[in-house]
Amino acid sequence: MSVTLADVENIARLAKLSFSKEEMITFTGQFNQILQYMEKLNELDTENVEPTFHVLDSGNPLRDDVQQTWLTPEQALANAPKAKNGFFSVPKMIG
């Protein structure tokens, strides 16, 4: 398995990060080195091994459905770069 420059550009876009063309080319090479290293794992026969979704095998601890109040709207918005009328204000998303 390997990635192309286009894959790296796509990953950068999904992560909302921007890089120069040179950086992208460097990353493509580095990503491929990592993938090659991981390829080693394919040497093992995992035919009859269940996928490990989680390292712990126990079930989820559950919480009782009890409601509690944590923050006031003022506290919630205290660190927001911009707030208005009790809302977080962000750059326009659509339209």
Binding site: V66, Q67, W70, L77
Partner: peptide, 26 residues
């Protein structure tokens, strides 16, 4: 439910904005 799926904030509809939040859901 009374509370949210992964934290204890109220899951009620129609409250004033950002009044039912905590570090988990934020």
């Amino acid at each position: 439910t009374q509370s949210k799926i992964f934290c204890s904030c109220s899951a009620k509809f129609g409250a004033s904005p950002n009044s039912q939040v905590c570090p988990v859901c934020l």
